[in-house]
Design a binder for these strands. Structure first.
Ligand code: MN
Ligand code: MN
Ligand code: MN
Ligand code: MN
Lengths: 143, 143
DNA sequence: TTTTAAATATAGCCGTGGCTATATCGCATG
DNA sequence: CATGCGATATAGCCACGGCTATATTTAAAA
């Protein structure tokens, strides 16, 4: 080998910034997806149900909903259910589809279902559009 | 279909708790791996170099090092370089190996190198031992 | 219609992980 | 050996995402 095969140090900060960026929206994505699920199942998403499914205390869910509202992803009136805005619903659909693809892909390469589900919940937020397409292509040609 | 094919709501909190758990150690893993790199390259890891490569301000790196010390992963004396403890070095090696496997796996399934490097930096922290073994098996039988 | 229980909001705490500004220290240079 | 500069530490700010305890509101029951 005539050249160093490790990434140049100068490129590293971008990698970490990229990961930090993805992480910053991860929680929003999970909340939005789950609120979409609850709306589909029950017609509305109550804070108590959100907290229960996320495995957090109720004030934690209330605070997260406040952030979703600030970001224009959800709407709600005091003491009532939470609803997604158009852009929130659109995000929820994208996130849900990505989640399913990541799980299916992991299973396809030999990861047990339960483990795939656990790992995908964190991994999914770092899967770029390009990588997602690679996963889809793999699934397509594997059948 | 006679049954619901989506995961039961009762299982969801564990998924999210699992992802939160992985995320809580993600930064420690990246710092430890990078300090190991710097020690190998330069003999010691200076806070300035750590900050530069992580793409953060110097006090941010200093604070992270303080946490590493509290967790028993690193040692340092004021105004001197940072060094890994045995358990820190051991963690660094594991994390580095996992990082390489994840990148190689992504490339093997068709993700461009640069994208694989970016996505892996975040994904790696959510790849369990079981999933990692599946990735290794895939790489082995693909050659 | 009153009372009570459940749901939600609010207050206030903590640790993490960013930042800027500034104080302090160590070392090379003059 | 003094001094100045670069590296490190410290102080203090912020947002996020957890938590418990408590106030408030809604809605059901009496
Ligand atoms: Mn998730
Ligand atoms: Mn998900
Ligand atoms: Mn990483
Ligand atoms: Mn890494």
């Amino acid at each position: 080998m005539t050249q160093d095969d490790s990434p140049p140090a100068a490129a590293q900060p971008d990698r970490f910034a990229h990961a930090r960026e993805a992480q910053a929206v991860a929680l929003l994505e999970d909340y939005v997806e789950m609120i979409g699920d609850l709306m589909a199942e029950l017609g509305e998403a109550r804070v108590a149900d959100i907290a229960l499914r996320m495995g957090v205390a109720q004030p934690t869910a209330t605070k997260a909903v406040a952030r979703l509202k600030r970001e224009g992803l959800a709407v709600s009136r005091p003491y009532r259910g939470v609803f997604l805005t158009d852009s929130g619903a659109e995000l929820a659909d994208r996130v849900r589809a990505r989640h399913r693809t990541v799980v299916a892909f992991l299973v396809a390469v030999g990861v047990p279902e339960e483990v795939a589900e656990l790992d995908a919940e964190g991994m999914e937020h770092h899967v770029s559009a390009t990588t997602l397409r690679a996963f889809e292509a793999f699934l397509a040609e594997k059948g």
